[in-house]
Amino acid sequence: MTEYTADEMMTVAAARQLRDGTACFVGIGLPSTAANLARATHAPGLVLIYESGCLGAKPDRLPLSIGDGVLADTADAVVSVPEVFNYWLQPGRIDVGFLGAAQLDRYGNINTTVVGGDYTDPKVRLPGAGGAPEIAASCGEVVVVVRQSLRTFTERVDFVTSVGYGSGPGDRARLGLRGGGPRTVITDLGVLEADPATCELTLTRLHPGVTVDQARAATGWPLAVADELATGEPPTADELAVLRALEATKRTAR
């Protein structure tokens, strides 16, 4: 069997989450890699929407930024930034939003703003919100992709940049958030899904070779584990070949 890295497994698992024919709001980095992998394998009809205003982009190489020329050149339409947020995201036209996180709690609330200290004097200043708060609010569902560790999977996030399920069931409705929230979290160890009753992220699948104890040790709260814990399929030879070819385009990009 072909060797692969934990990051490759995470990217492949994230790509598999995307259904053909849906519209996906894509951020740069791993989400963009996963979305393009999906489009090049099982989901050729996946509609990629970048916040730079590119609707239906079909890049043949991985963009380094969300505004790379290849996205505009291959898009069905290029619209203004106010339009992408107001006409496309806000009314709920986008099925899936892909988000990363510096910190994540058990209800899928996300921090990408500051870590440690307080807001005006943080230990680490991160980039901030970008499009994430409204992506988290308005997409049909959210898929979070994040490496699982005690640093990222925290009991409390230091700052709520994007709301998951708030403090539990009913919070999204109370806040008037119309999208479905973070149904799925893909990590380098496995897959977590929000429990329909408690909204708590629950480990439902491990990547091949990963143990429950490893997942627990990388989680800053008592991790909920599904009764029927599945083991995911390793990347296929085709998935790996396409992923590596895509990654290679990043290194040779001008």
Partner: peptide
């Protein structure tokens, strides 16, 4: 707009 709701940004 529909935005910011529930986040720490308005604080």
């Amino acid at each position: 707009l529909r935005g910011y709701t529930g986040t720490d940004l308005p604080r």
